[in-house]
Nucleic acid binder design. Structure first.
Length: 592
DNA sequence: ATAGGGTTAG
């Protein structure tokens, strides 16, 4: 529509119509600014219809701020403004990243002006609370929802579940969910997604099964959350089942769903399948590229990650900060120190991305792992942002590994002073004393930990067999097959010792005798799970296990021998990465 | 006019 500023509109209603139809065709911000000028010229700045349309047309924060400025003005014609207008402004704020919480201010102004909220108001304000994690505020809206009688509205309740999930109150979310009068696929997705986001992946999968029992058909969004739970668990069989389910139920494969599949296959150990899926994608988004780069990083295929990164640039896709975390961690896992340094520099110079603390963390990790402890320390000293405890912990772990024990001790002591309730600081110091053979000091640490009621996170290993997930915890004696498993561990020990395995008893940081140390090593959950798999699966079947911590040196060495003696491929996912054991060697080339 | 999803260092 052509717009002529010289045209004089005398009739107010006609002017209003003109503005509305102009806004209807508005496509660009520039266009919007011109229309805004015209709105002012026609004296329609506080016209409710125009204001509503103006707000809903633009996602620009300035435009929204302008609308709320009019609403908040001391001489505002409050009697003209209805719930619809307020809802529009609240929604606009709730959708922005920067000013989400302002939605709540608009809500308050609305209450102040005695404009009644309706059932559409609450999803917006609850979403704003979810976005900024404000539980108390969310709870007060929960109260208002009940007060105004919207507690049976499925849309309001779905957002309420989402809000509680996002505010760290998963139990409250579950109570609201359980008490809903009925559930649609959105309700289930909100709850399943809530579990998946905070890592309660088993609950997410269980709830998905309940959803099937309830015969609610999941959509592609539900499936993204379920796949995310599979990724977290490392449950390949389950993930494959989900993939089949998607095909069978003809659930539309959105880009996000394809990305979730890629992520699942990479994190469940079949990175080549992830790569094939990735290649078959028509439009690849930044997330597709990042997922496959992170996948390569986890499998120690640093050079392939780097070449994917180059291909991504050639494709004209600009990397973001997450891509760089994947790329830098790929360099770190593969010992590509020079490449990592170069990519880190290119971040600012070529792509104008300001490195965050995570990127500095990757670099410290890169230098530390490669044994460049001094360079790591220099790097930390020169960081433009305050190093966080994670960075210091990375550094001290490297100190222990590369014999810089005094440096490690002093940093860790500082850490304990700063974060006296963080158990991993004590574990680090205790490990350093163990390596120094300062048993008395080490015992003191353990006593202090005991007094404060802290203890080491127990190691656990998960294995999927016949559609069931088994979890082994270090030293667990309660398993049904306890006796058989330990006989198997003894047998494994005898066989691999004959092949040259020497127990790495120096890894055991306890002041006990040699035999007890070997015994302690044999109770590691990883060995329990491998013994269980050898007992329960036919010869030659590959073994896949998932650990909650990083693989220890002794288990790593033992698993190499086991893969050779028992002719099994063993795929171990630890906290950071994958280890592919085959014929006595590991894909990480003993660098992890 | 209303609700729900993915990628992140140690």
């Amino acid at each position: 529509m052509h717009f002529s500023p010289s045209k004089i509109v005398v009739n107010k209603r006609a002017a209003e119509q003109q503005c509305l139809s102009l806004l209807q065709t508005c496509t660009t911000l520039l266009n919007l600014n011109q229309i805004h000028a015209q709105i002012l010229k026609l004296g329609l700045h506080d016209n409710p219809l125009v204001l509503t349309k103006f707000t809903s047309t633009s996602s620009d924060l300035n435009a929204i701020d302008y609308a709320s400025f009019i609403l908040f003005a001391p001489d505002a014609k409050t009697h003209l403004y209805d719930t619809f207008l307020y809802n529009t402004v609240i929604r606009a704020y709730a959708q922005t990243n920067q000013s989400r919480i302002t939605a709540v201010d608009v809500y308050k102004t609305m209450a102040w002006n005695d404009v009644m909220p309706n059932k559409f108001t609450y999803p917006f304000v609850l979403k704003a609370c979810a976005g900024v994690g404000r539980l108390r505020l969310g709870e007060s809206f929960h109260g208002s929802v009940v007060k105004f009688g919207f507690e049976n509205d499925i849309h309001v309740l779905n957002t309420m579940v989402h809000m509680y999930c996002c505010c760290g109150a998963i139990e409250n979310a579950r109570v609201v969910f359980d008490e809903m009068p009925k559930w649609d696929s959105v309700s289930w997705s909100a709850m399943i997604g809530g579990y998946a986001r905070i890592g309660m992946s088993t609950s997410a999968v269980e709830l998905f099964r309940d959803m099937q029992i309830a015969r609610v058909k999941p959509d592609e969004i539900t499936m993204v959350s379920v796949l995310s739970a599979c990724s977290d668990l490392g449950a390949l069989e389950l993930g494959k089942w989900v993939e089949n389910y998607i095909e069978r139920e003809k659930i539309p494969k959105s880009m996000e769903l394809c990305n979730a599949l890629i992520d699942m296959f990479a994190k469940c150990g079949d990175v080549d399948k992830a790569l094939r899926l990735f290649r078959s994608l028509d439009g690849k988004t930044i997330v597709s590229w990042t997922s496959v780069i992170v996948g390569m990083a986890m499998h120690g295929r640093g050079l392939e990650a780097a070449s994917l990164f180059e291909k991504m640039k050639d494709d004209g896709v600009a990397p973001d900060d997450v891509t760089f975390i994947g790329l830098l961690s790929a360099c770190s896992h593969s010992g590509l120190v020079d490449e990592g340094r170069r990519y880190f520099d290119s971040m600012t110079q070529e792509f104008h991305i300001t490195p965050k603390i995570e990127h500095y963390g990757c670099m410290v990790d890169l230098f530390s792992r490669a044994g460049h402890v001094k360079e790591a320390l220099e790097f930390v000293k020169k960081m433009p942002i305050e190093p966080n405890p994670i960075i210091w912990r990375t550094l001290t772990a490297a100190c222990r590994l590369h014999g810089e024990l005094n440096l490690g001790e002093s940093i860790t002591k500082q850490l304990i002073e700063n974060e006296p309730l963080h158990e991993s600081n004590y574990v680090l110091l205790s490990n350093i004393y163990g390596k120094m053979s300062h048993w008395e000091k080490k015992n003191t640490i353990r006593e202090v930990m005991g007094e404060k009621g802290m203890r080491k996170i127990p190691g656990s290993t998960m294995i999927e067999l016949d559609n069931k997930i088994y979890e082994f915890v270090a030293g667990d004696r309660t398993h049904d097959l306890y006796k058989e498993i330990h006989e198997m561990i003894d047998e494994m020990g005898r066989k691999i010792k004959m092949a040259g395995y020497v127990p790495t008893t120096s890894e055991v940081l306890l002041d006990i005798g040699q035999e007890d140390k070997e015994d302690a090593l044999n109770r590691h959950s990883e060995k329990l799970a491998i013994a269980f798999a050898l007992l329960k699966t036919p010869p030659g079947t590959p073994i896949r296990i998932v650990k909650n911590l990083r693989v220890c040196g002794d288990c790593h060495s033992a698993t190499k021998f086991i893969s050779k003696i028992y002719s099994r491929e063993i795929l171990v996912r630890d906290r950071n990465r994958f280890h592919h054991f085959k014929d006595g060697v590991c894909s990480c080339k003993d660098f992890w």
